[in-house]
Structure formats: C-alpha cells, structure tokens
C-alpha cells in the first residue's frame, strides 16, 4: 500500500496505482474534483495514455524516502504512485497555466465547428477547453484541412477535428480481430486513416465512435438527426448473441424514436463495456430492448443541463479572471479540501 496526497487530500492505494487512478479514487470517495482531465487515457484499453499531456500534474515530493520534487510536470496516467508522494493538481497555478497551454495546442488545429458537429454537447474537448483553457486563440495561420471520408458505411471520419489520442487505434488493436487503421505520416502532418481508405468492417468497429473524445469519428446513421441535448438517454439491454458483446447499451430517444444506440459511459466519460455493431446500428426500435430507466449523466457534457459541476466552473472562472485581469486568485493550501468546499 502507498499513501499519496493529491491536492491536500490523502488516500491509501495499492502499489502500482497510477496518480490518475488514485485521484479518481479520491473523487469517488469524497466527491471532489481532484482528477485531472484526460483525453487519450482510457481505463478499458491497454497501453493508452501519455499522448495528450492534459493530465499533467506536478509532483512536489517524490516519495517518503526521496522527498525531492520531480523537475517537470509528469503525465499522471502513466506515473505510478510512491509511498509518501505529494501531488499538486488544481492547487498549483503554474500547473493550470501549463495545462491551458496544452489545451491551446490541442485547439490550434481544431476547426471549432461545434455548431455543425454531431459530437457537440458530449465532446470532451469542449469540456476540457471550457474548464481548463484560456479565452480566445492566438493562432493566426491556416489550419490543417482534410476532406471528411467514410470508413465503412457506418462511420464517418473527419480528420480536421482529430486530436490524435490514438484511442480508436487501440480499439481496433484490442477489441476487434485485426487492426485496419492507424496513424499515417508524422509530426504535425500525421493523420488517422485506414490503409488506402479501406473500410473498417468487423463486428466491433462501431466502438471507435464511442471512444473518440471529439467529433472526428461519428455515427453515420445518427448524422445530423438531432443535437444530443435534445435526445433523452435511457439505459436498456438485450440478449445479444454476438460473442464479446454485453448488450448493455444506452438508447437516445427523441419522442418515441430511438435515434441512436451507444455504449454506457461512466462518470469519466469512458464506455463501461463495448457493444457490437448489430446492437449499435441495427436495433433502432424500442421493442428490441428491455428498458432499465433513465440514465444517470455525469458532470461531463452539456446534456446534463444546468448540473454542470460547480467546482469545475469555479476553477474555470478563476483562471479566466487571472487571464483577463492579471489578478492572481488564491488556490493555495487547503483551497480545494473537501471540508472547505461550499457546495
């Protein structure tokens, strides 16, 4: 067991836990918002994480034995905790500044076409930039532009919106039989694509839509049907015969019609289990499903109308005030301790 302190909250976790997992444990236990945002890490997939750098935290004390601080911010999704480690996330203004820099980098080549993007409303990049980003852009050059392409008859790929998190690549690697797409080229020119634009064609290919944190991979059967916040999520299940599919899904209703079927997302915006393409694309009739009741929606995304968690908004506003006026807001010792937080 290792004792780790994140933003003044101490928790004991098993050895080999990452800082990110420890922070999520704290949040689940105390209902706080210590966990750093993630764009590429996905707990259900192996070897994800470490790419996007939004989950960076500063380690002010390495461990009990070696109390030196780490010289650079570390990626919390890839760094294991040590006994006696002290981590600062939201309590370090320098770190929030650094994270705002990462958000800016992610956004400079993002088209910001949210008004016409199907992902708007449940987009992790929207949440991220709203909570952690600065106002406005300083990028005054042409952005990268690609033509949207169809990969298969069910999935649309819009590379302009991609932030290169590699999640979909890992899905095809690990959930489906064979890897059919990946990253082409390198550096600022890299792009996700199938080899020679071949179609992705297997039973679990639809999961790339669920894991995509932005609108780069969208459901062609749901395309432009409705904004997500006008649809009502309901948990349902069916007895699915496809091997590996749990049949536990979330149906998105508009009136009596099922507009789309997705996997269920947990409070971190990650799919609880992966579902097959038959469930996702072909069973769009309420009679196919056994209803379980309305879904609980976490703080992520605007579909949780007016319940956007207070603490994150406070943090975002504090950052904005500092950015606009230069006034430094006190985020010092104990500022985010669950006992001091007024809800």
């Amino acid at each position: 067991m290792a004792k780790v302190t994140i933003d003044d909250i101490t928790i004991e976790v098993p050895d080999g836990t990452t800082i990110l997992q420890a922070a999520r444990m704290i949040d689940e236990k105390y209902g706080t918002h210590t966990a750093p945002p993630t764009m590429c890490y996905y707990s259900k997939l192996k070897t994800t994480g470490g790419y996007c750098r939004t989950c960076i935290v500063s380690v002010t004390q390495g461990s009990e034995k070696d109390p030196r601080p780490m010289p650079k911010p570390v990626a919390s999704c890839r760094t294991n905790v040590m006994d006696g480690m002290v981590v600062k996330n939201n309590t370090s203004p320098e770190l929030l500044e650094a994270r705002a820099g990462v958000v800016e980098f992610l956004l400079i080549n993002h088209p910001l076409d949210c008004p016409v993007c199907d992902q708007a409303g449940e987009c992790h990049l929207q949440d991220l930039s709203y909570e952690n980003g600065d106002e406005g852009s300083r990028f005054q050059f042409p952005k990268r532009v690609y033509e949207p392409i169809d990969i298969g008859d069910k999935v649309k790929l819009n590379m302009n919106r991609c932030i290169m998190c590699y999640r979909c690549v890992k899905v095809c690697d690990q959930i489906t039989d064979n890897r059919v797409h990946g990253m082409l080229y390198r550096g600022a020119d890299s792009e996700i694509s199938t080899y020679i634009e071949k179609a992705i064609d297997n039973d679990f290919s639809g999961n790339v839509i669920d894991v995509c944190p932005v609108g780069a991979l969208t459901d062609r059967t749901f395309r432009f049907k409705s904004r997500v916040w006008f649809t009502k999520p309901v948990d349902a299940h069916r007895n699915c015969e496809t091997e590996g599919c749990t049949g536990k899904v979330r149906l998105w209703f508009k009136g009596d019609d099922v507009l789309r079927v997705t996997s269920r997302k947990d409070q971190w915006g990650e799919a609880e289990s992966f579902i097959c393409n038959t469930c996702r694309f072909e069973k769009k009739n309420a009679n196919d499903w056994v209803m379980e009741g309305p879904s609980k929606i976490s703080h992520h995304s605007v579909i949780n109308q007016n319940h956007y968690e207070l603490q994150q908004i406070k943090l975002g506003i504090k950052r904005q005030i500092k950015h606009l006026t230069g006034v430094k807001i006190d985020l010092g010792e104990g500022a985010l301790n669950p006992n001091n937080i007024q809800k």
Binding site: G50, Y51, T54, V102, L106, M164, M183, R186, A188
Partner: peptide, 11 residues
Amino acid sequence: ESCGQCSPCRE
C-alpha cells in the same frame, strides 16, 4: 523531426 505523438510538440 517531431513524431506527432504528444500534443505540445506536434502542434
């Protein structure tokens, strides 16, 4: 030379 894996360097 940037490989494009992590965001700050790629962009």
